[in-house]
Write a protein that binds this DNA or RNA. Structure first.
Lengths: 340, 340
DNA sequence: CTGAAAGCGCTTACAG
DNA sequence: CTGAAAGCGCTTACAG
């Protein structure tokens, strides 16, 4: 860190005061055009770089936003992150990113670090097992928080998907294809999102008068390896299901892989539906039918929710935002077989 | 941003001076243990949060590292990012992340923003078409720079892979399987990394006395869609190649997909090798043979290179680091067929 | 081992 | 429309 010219140096070069330089840099209309031009010229000539840290300290408002993500190995979150970063950058904010890898201790460290860095706001997808009290704690720090994908009560701005409706949709699609024995892969006990998804599945089954064998509801890790286990569990049954709804695309990828290894074809031996519509789902063999929440749209809404919180004053507080997008089903070969 | 207690408040509560509090927070051995404990207790009681921005301003050294990545949709870079972040966090640094999406204007903006944020150092995978002068320019800013994956001359610390050796290896593996007509998918004119990879491929072919039809060297986008085009180009030839070396796993995914669509099986109709060993390469159908550079190792080395630059003084400058890992070939079914 | 003082680079009322 | 002055929260020589 060698320290370059400061506004003081510009002021001297342009023959004005520090205050004037500062106002010019903030594009203040209070400064005459010629003066402003003279100042900008001097700044350019000196190779001036604005010191945002000093401005934050003095001005008491920061332009960095913290983004805490639980799982960057899931491409859906990468797409979400990219979308959020894009919108925030357009509004002049810098994104401080952190990855918790579903580790609560890491999450605590990361949040601490973000406080120390003086973030103006926080977008967060909480790690599994995050205590329900965390949103209230963050609020007590005076940092606006928007939760993404993983709801934690109704007191905090939340952007996510309607998992119940989505999994109902996915299950009904399989029922329409003539399936009556449908499994659910990726149930995780005590995990809100998994519960919502399971209940959407159960609702669709019940609505169509289909019985569900408890062994069809398979608790596996939410990874490709989990998906492979699920397939083995399914074909271990005396009369195995003919279709499976997977917790997400990662699980579905494992399902497709294990089917292939067994010499079976997804869509024929077992109809498969995923969730997230990650880019790779279009390129699997066969291509994966999956629920699309639109990472791009969700990221945009999340950013905009946070931005409007940052702009609001004490008098014009807006109501809590709870937005759950209705997913769409993108039908590909894994659920229909090559015939269609 | 509500402003909490400062070291001044702690000093008052603990009955010591500001200086003492500051020293305690820096774990200075100059302070007696009892005094330190008293100060820490007061800080805890007041709910104190360290203001890193103020410290940076006064101390003239920053603890944030900028990380500029060209393509987060490629999971390899995500793995790299995660590794780098982990190592830097262990050394007390915070990572400021930015994604350029191969856009030069975006890259310029992002670098500007990082300068304003006072980053102590920069890890960067430059966007395609970055001018050769950029590393020198960044050096002139006084910010240490480590390049990852994409070399730009020998004057700057660079961590990457030996693409030449890697693609030689990949091609030789296919030759050992009995292939003599081998294509290269993902040549991009004027792109250093693509050139290195192509030359590794050509070397292996030449070493084994195999001729290369120019139409086997296929220039496509470095995406799954590019891979699909490559397959169509291959089977349009009168006597098509029986194997293909792909620029990276993304391209290979498209190749596998298009083969499947044509009712052909990778490993039988066409042997396929990728590069990067991204997590998903293990879960394709069939699983993908690919070059592994070890994102984790590379990320660790890159971070450590940067950290040692940050610690060095003017007197003990270390030589430029140019580290190119020899990739390993992970052999899976896409290059051997199910027989093996 | 601890305290008083200066100052990092900026912004923001307050005068004029 | 512009300038002089105070101060954001911290660190770092310098005394003692």
């Amino acid at each position: 860190m060698k320290s370059g010219p400061t506004i003081q140096d510009i002021a001297a070069a342009a023959g004005v005061s520090k205050s004037t330089v500062s106002l010019v840099l903030q594009q203040s209309p209070k400064i005459r055009a010629e003066t402003a031009e003279k100042v900008r010229e001097a700044a350019r000539a000196l190779g001036y770089v604005y010191n945002r840290g000093a401005a934050t300290l003095r001005g008491r408002r920061s332009t960095t936003i913290g983004m805490v993500i639980n799982d960057l190995t899931n491409p859906f979150f990468v797409e979400l992150l990219v979308a959020i970063e894009r919108v925030l950058a357009q509004s002049g904010y810098t994104t401080l990113m952190a990855h918790t890898a579903e580790d609560l201790e890491m999450q605590t460290r990361v949040l601490q670090s973000m406080r120390e860095q003086n973030v103006a706001g926080l977008v967060m997808s909480p790690a599994l097992g995050t205590p329900d009290s965390l949103p209230a704690e963050i609020r007590s720090w005076g940092i606006p928080l928007v939760l993404v994908m993983r709801p934690m009560g109704t007191d905090v701005d939340t952007i996510g998907v309607d998992n119940f409706v989505g999994f109902q949709l996915a299950t009904e699609h399989l029922i329409e294809q003539g399936h009556t024995r449908i499994a659910f892969a990726g149930n995780r006990a005590g995990y809100t999102v998994a519960t919502q998804r399971r209940q959407g599945y159960l609702k669709a089954m019940a609505d169509h008068g289909l019985k569900v064998d408890p062994r069809w509801i398979i608790d596996v890790e939410l990874t490709p390896e989990g998906g492979r286990q699920a397939v083995r569990a399914i074909f271990d049954l005396a009369s195995p299901p003919t279709a499976v709804v997977c917790y997400n695309d990662q699980v579905a990828f494992g399902v497709l892989r294990e089917l292939d290894r067994m010499g079976k074809r997804a869509g024929k031996a077992l109809a498969v539906v995923g969730c997230d519509n990650v880019v790779a789902s279009e390129h699997t063999n066969p291509p994966l039918t999956t629920l699309s929440a639109g990472a791009d749209t969700l990221g945009t809404i999340a950013s905009e929710t946070l931005l409007s919180r940052l702009e609001e004053s004490a008098h014009n507080e807006q109501p809590i935002m709870q937005y759950f997008a209705k997913p769409k089903l993108v039908v590909r070969e894994s659920s229909t077989g090559p015939a269609q």
